[in-house]
Design a protein around this nucleic acid. Structure first.
Lengths: 190, 190, 190, 190
DNA sequence: AATGAATGAGCGTTCATTCAT
DNA sequence: TATGAATGAACGCTCATTCAT
């Protein structure tokens, strides 16, 4: 019943406001420093530390809450890619959109790079995503658009690593980052 | 005058011994936990914390000292690759060996992923490495073995991201990791 | 008016159910960890923290509620002991049974060791107990079965200390603990 | 080599001063509240929290340092008791002095009640103490002054429990507490 | 040059308690 | 009356860094 959820329902108005504030501050911290110090985030959000822990009993649950919206969008984009008839084009669409989503949302990258889940709903959504991707990969493989040995988990790792390569460092790539996904796409062909 | 060096010369015997002990302990910490707590390392090495700071005034300098040996080996391997006459084979050799070196040495990956240097000698060696790679890339490009838009810095990022993808997570790839570099090699072709 | 009671009467059905659940969880916590964290207990019992506080406005009142059953049993056992005609045997019976009750119920020990009461009914029951014991002690003293200087409060302290000695530590005494009460019984003789 | 000691040697002057301040404040806290919050103790002693942890890496080590002087005195007193020729009188002397020492020093009671040791020197001193007591108990048993089934560890528990009984509660016994050890002495006789 | 004592910012976490809904 | 959101004091502990000896 009172299981931790990345996207809770039926929050009281004030609780929802606090949650939103916490997420907002946390997002800034995470994207800027890569860290999620709950004490500082709570203070900056003008919220008691206990409240922060009530909403996010672990850092992982906070990461999942941060990533939830982006995860939803990614799921939608992948479903759109699956709808493309030509397997090669579908694969390209899926990889490209996943790459863009990961580059745009550090929490999503952290969540998928970790591969573990604290919140049941996040795990469920991610599981659906992986299942969708699996379908697409199988089609791509059968049509000869994808190397045989690349599975869902490989793609997860490759995409996370690639977005890290594009995003990390003192001078993260901006508009230019599209080049990297072309390298990956080229490499995925048999 | 006495600029910090990743590989100092003319150390007194005891100083050299302390340095070696610190590096040994630090390497263990870094490979096991990914962290470099100077206090604990100094204590474990049986060396005063002040001495540790004399040797490594910043964590970055410690990382560079840790990576120096691997960096040397990488430089040698790249020079060997350059010596290969066929540009495509040379490129493949270089990328493969760099990937393996990065997978095998977390400090080397940290150093190259950061892209900044605290020690002049490390910067110089890395500069030489990049110059060598640049030569190889130009040859590869001219012979049509490499995409036009991939520069040295792109390759640095791609390799670091790829080794992170192979190494990270609860179940790092082991012998199997060779698959990933094939993806990269495939993607580098025009 | 509505003074706090360790054993309230006329509770609504749901309130009684909540109370019972809270006590059940609290007993488990107290016997396992020696602590009574109200938040965790309320959550585990599926009861709001506010409700928990309504039932048990202080930790002391919770301890007293936890101890109430055991206290009743102890009162009964002491009355039985008083009924024994021979003063020496009566004293022995009373001390032995009290010791066993204390060893078996950590909350009872906590209540009697503290010596103060938050709930009027607990205080009343304990007062009755002490009065009964007082009677027995007087008889024992007069018959020469008890040292003159040992009063009810001394016995309370001695018994609590003894059960702590038997129960505490990494290796609490089990079946063997009967030895300790023999020491006390021996020492109570003039 | 750098093992934790309850009584370190060769401290720098300022370190010794800080240590003494910490112990002084800690003793007050422990005797008044039974707790040892390192943060508060460090602040009250006018010492950084890091310094406090340097001196006492665990609460247990702080307890042992607090108890060390009393433990020494107890060892001396027990040796004196052993020197008494008559076994019954020797036993009485030992039990009485141990009881008094425990009543007078809460840290000593905590240390002996726990029965575990973080500092090698404290463990060694305590081990010597137990060995001495063992000798005395054997003599007492052989001369018929002690119940057969009471061993060193039983006596440890009984004495800790008894001193807790005398010391605890809202109205700890003062001069009067001698009565309790008479009960124990009486009970130890066969 | 080496040592290691001292510092204190900072993080994770618990939990008693209050109060708006 | 029941609920549970919010609060914040308090505590344990780590670790980078400075500086007196």
């Amino acid at each position: 019943m009172s299981e931790t959820l990345a996207r809770p329902t039926g929050l009281r108005a004030d609780a929802a406001r606090n949650r939103a504030r916490l997420l907002e501050v946390a997002r800034r911290h995470h994207s800027q420093t890569g860290q999620l110090p709950l004490n500082a985030i709570a203070a900056e959000a003008g919220v008691g530390i206990g409240t922060a822990y009530r909403h996010f009993p672990s850092q992982q649950s906070l990461v999942e809450a941060l990533a939830m919206d982006a995860l939803d969008r990614l799921v939608g984009a992948v479903k759109q890619a699956i709808a493309v008839e030509d397997p090669a084009r579908a694969l390209r669409a899926m990889v490209t959109t996943a790459y863009e989503h990961l580059c745009d949302d550090a929490a999503l990258t952290a969540l998928l790079a970790g591969g573990t889940f604290a919140c049941a709903d996040a795990a469920a959504v991610a599981g659906g995503l992986f299942a969708d991707v699996e379908i697409l990969l199988r089609r791509s493989r059968q049509s000869g658009a994808l190397r045989a040995e690349v599975g869902v988990d490989d793609l997860r790792r490759l995409l996370c690593g690639l977005s890290a390569a594009a995003t990390a460092g003192p001078a993260p790539l901006g508009n230019d980052r599209g080049r990297y996904v072309e390298v990956l796409l080229g490499g995925l062909r048999p």
